[in-house]
Structures are given as structure tokens and as C-alpha cells.
Amino acid sequence: MKGNSSSAKPLTDHDHYKAPSEPSIKKVPPKRKKRRRSQAFQEAVTGYFFLAPALILLGVFLLYPMGAAFYYSFTDFYILKPDDISFIGFENFSYIWQDAQFRQAFWNTVYFSVIVVPVQLAVALGLALLINKKLKFRVFFRTAFFSPVVMSLVVVSILWTFMYNPNEGLINQLLGLIGISPQPFLTSPDQAMNSIIVMSVWQGAGFQMMIFLAGLQNIPNHLYEAADIDGASNWQKFLHVTLPGLKNIALFIFITISIAAFKLLVQPMIMTQGGPLGSTKSLVYHIYETGFNYRDVGYASAMAVVFTLIVLTITIIQRVLIREERG
């Protein structure tokens, strides 16, 4: 959603609207002869007047902190000693490679993303396909699948913490009914992240299902009719009509959930405090703890910079792949 529209054409060019056929790709707006200078000046003033509040706010509260994070990452900024900041070069960055906790948090985050993204995508698509037909109670089913989205991540995390409780939790009680012994869902290092993944998919899939449904409705009916005439099977129709029709939407969802997945924080913070044995500590959580609990803003900033670079890289790789796909 960003790449295409950021192409450098002056989108504010009036001519663009009067004569859409006219190419307006040049940076300098053409044909300004007729406009009087003062008029152009006035328009610039008005334009900036409208734009300035947003620009100032973005500059102060987004770009400046970004720069500050970069600056802090080269210092030993310690919260308890805010007046004693010294420049320490790349020390913070070199420590990242020795920091076993960072490595663990990194791989935890990768593991979470690599599982959650495809699973959630598949579940969402599956649900959308299931109810994208004439059904009794269709609205009821749709609402049911969507309902976890209505709860906040905090609410859901708390709810599932109680459900996952090793002794009195609902899920273990239900498993007990069918003769399965209690599982240490959140208290075993092997299961904790998987338990968080299950919950996350449960919470998020309904939302992407809605987007898929909207996409499915946009696939023209005549394509299916044509396929019917060709005697295509349901599977063939799915493969050659439905999937291509959903490609753009699927890509969009893919990008948004993979970035969201990489920012994992709330679930482990509430459900496991990153444990057991750091098995659910995510990158953002590690940064938060380092900065706030251990007051090491310098090192936390260095990790934040690395985190930003990782997210950027993912975004760029996905963009490139998508562009290639589209050829």
C-alpha cells in the first residue's frame, strides 16, 4: 500500500485532475505560466498550513525518537544516570551477538512468525471458503468466527491464561473428560510458545476471514460459469479461479500479519512473562525489559535499531518477491 503510491509524481498537481490523460510524472509541475506567482505562493502557504500540524507531530513524535534511538544505541544511557551519557561506539551492537537472551528471543520470534503466519492465513482462507456459499445460519457462523476479534489481545490473553491453567484450567478439565492427562500448556518450555500460537491464531483468523470474504465476493461470477462450461471440477475451480482472484488480498494479509507477528509482545508478557526458561521471550519483550526493568536504554536502543532493520528487511523482501510475482 505504500510502494506504489510513493512513486514520485506530484500528486498535488491540479492538471492531473483536469486532464488525466496528460502524463504528469515529472517532479516539477509543468505549465505554470498562466498561474500568477502570488496565487502559487498563496496555494503553497495554504498547503503547508494544512499539512504542517501533521508534519510537526510526525517529526517530533516519530522521526525524532527514531533518530534518538539511533543515537542512544551508541551510548551507555542508563536510566538511573540520565546526566552521565557517554559515547561507546559499537559496543552495544557487538554485545548483541554475545547476548544469549537476544539470540533466544530472536529465534522465539522467528518461530512464532513462521508458524503463525501460514497457519493463520490458511485458517482464515479455509473459514472464508466454508461460509462463502448459500448456507443456513451463514451470518451466525460468520459472526461466531469473527467474535474473538472483538476482544482485545489483553482480554484474550488473560482469558486463555486461565483456560490453560495446569490444574484448574478449562482446557485441561475438558481434556480430562476424554481421558487425556493434564498438559503443562504454559509451564513447559516445549509447549508454551505453541500454546500462545494456538491462541493467537484463534484470536486473529476471524478478521482475515472477513477480508477474504470481501475478496471472494469481488471475483466475478462469470469466471465460475465459464469454468462450469469447461466442465471444471470444484478443485480445479478453486485452483484456477478462486486462488488467482484472491492473490492480491492474500499478499496484503501475508504482509500485515507477518509484520504484526514479528512485533509479538502482549501474549508472552501477560501469559508467561517470557518464560518458562525464556522460551516465549520475544524480541520486543526483551527490548522492553532491558530498557524499563533493567534500565539499560543504550543497549535496548541498539536492539531496537536491529529490530527495525529486521522488520524493514522483511518488508523489502516481501515487496520484491511480490513485484517479481506480478512480473
Binding site: 500500500m1 505504500k2 503510491s5 510513493s6 501533521a54 510526525l58 516519530l62 522521526l63 525524532y64 525518537p65 527514531m66 534518538a68 534511538a69 542512544y72 509484520i259 514479528f262 512485533k263 509482545l265 520486543v284 527490548i287 522492553y288 530498557g291 524499563f292 536504554v297 535496548a300 536502543s301 531496537a304 535499531v305 529490530f307 527495525t308 522488520v311 524493514l312 518488508t315
Partner: peptide, 15 residues
Amino acid sequence: IIATLIIPPESIFLP
């Protein structure tokens, strides 16, 4: 403005 969309808010909350 569009480029700022890529900055994860999580990475700037400390500064």
C-alpha cells in the same frame, strides 16, 4: 509520510 508507516512503533517507545 508513507515511509514512516514502516517504522515499527515498538522500536521507538523508549526514546
